[in-house]
Amino acid sequence: MAEAIQQDVKARVHRDKPLVEVSGLKKYFPVSSGIFSRASSFVHAVDDLNFTIMPGQSLGLVGESGCGKTTTGKLLVRLHEPTAGSILMQTEDGDMEDIAHHKGTALRQFRRRTQMIFQDPYESLNPRRTIFDTVAEPLTVQGIGTLTERQERVAALLNECGLTPPEQFMYRFPHELSGGQRQRVAIARALIIDPMFIVADEPTSMLDVSIRIGVMQLMSNLAERFGVSYLYITHDLAVARYMTDQIGVMYLGKMVERADTEELLSNPLHPYTQALLAATPVPDPRLSRDFINIKGGISKPVDPPPRCRFYARCPIADEFCRDNPHPPLEDKGGGHYVACYKVGVAGA
């Protein structure tokens, strides 16, 4: 049925090309200083990000609140327009297209390939619309398929997402569902249009422990079946460990370290990543943790000085860090990227 809707997702993606390629991505928000004056200072929410995501791979963005990870996610689904930089995304024909400043029809066309899953399953579903209306929305607004086809597709996808039997859920309202069920609805909505890339913003952080793993596994399984890549945003390194192939650690709008997930967790090189790992509680009283004391707290990157963003809190910073610009994100061997002057090349 519904050839209009269903496509062979796996054949669509060119595996040898990156799915997403971000370079020099910046987003500055003006700090309003008054009603009549023009903003003179800016929050550097995302400042010069560069990364690629290969098809079938998932990248985790990890960091504390205010580090710019959610802004990055919203830039990639174009809920925000970047201040500078390019976001190349693979199109259906395998070309790379810069979507950073798309508008109108081009933007709408792009929305068929990229979707988002939000953090709060209670606020991300319109309370006045049925589950069917919510899940079918991408099809409805893009004018894809007939009503019957949409109903069939929604039913099939709800079934896939573990909401069985789907007839029991289709015409209910969000308030009749539990948090875990709602998040499954949100996953179904993100998948209904067969996207190639999904930004998942803390999709399990508001769910209960016993529900969370089910949703995480569902997301992994569906990603594999439908050939979708995630940008997985989370504050929880332990969750990122299970959901991602690579992790990028962000601090005040900058990516300070990026490596394969297990490599990053077992061999963190940047002092901030080390502190983050040391502070993450371990669900086992028999395992001890190190304690790394970093100074102060996270601040807002309002017109930050050009030096390393982590300078003020860094336990190993020296004059060189103070007098030089923010260090570039460099490969320290084996695809382990670190932005720190004090970290030598691996093995050295």
Binding site: V209, S210, I211, R212, I213, G214, M216, Q217, D236, L237, A238, V239, R241, Y242, E262, L265, L277, T280, V282, P283, D284, L287, R289
Partner: peptide, 16 residues
Amino acid sequence: SFPSIKGQRQILQPLE
């Protein structure tokens, strides 16, 4: 069902 950054990466089991 609780993920950890320490130790072996275990297979997490959801509770039905």
